[in-house]
């Protein structure tokens, strides 16, 4: 899985920060979708979770509130999987440019 390799470069490990961000993200998904979800790094946010564009927008805004950051629109467009999202959150938190 390509995304996982890229994640490793950023420095996440299964037990490391990724795992905790993933569980936080999972809780936000459940809150926005109002149902339990199970996500993996390669979960496709639109395809696998059945989100429409409004759902994605609400979800992104919830993530932004939670982590106190803004994800620029061009970054949002690049995010397809949960791993992409974790990477974006990590980079934006640490101030690493896109």
């Amino acid at each position: 899985m390509r995304q996982n390799t890229q994640l490793a470069v950023v420095g996440g490990t299964e037990a490391g920060p990724n795992a905790s961000i993933r569980s936080e993200i999972s809780a936000i998904f459940e809150q926005v979708l109002n149902r339990p979800v199970s996500i993996e790094d390669d979960t496709d946010i639109v395809e696998d979770l059945g989100m429409d564009s409004l759902g994605v927008m609400n979800f992104v805004m919830a993530i932004e509130d939670y982590y106190d950051l803004s994800i620029p629109l061009d970054r949002i467009a690049q995010i397809q999987t949960v791993a992409d999202l974790i990477r974006a959150v990590q980079e934006l938190r640490s101030g690493v440019p896109a």
């Binding site: 927008m57 805004m61 803004s70 620029p72 629109l73 061009d74």
Partner: peptide, 12 residues
């Protein structure tokens, strides 16, 4: 916003 190069942020 897509024609230019600025970073685009959407608010509620």
């Amino acid at each position: 916003s897509r024609l230019g190069q600025a970073e685009v942020i959407r608010f509620r």
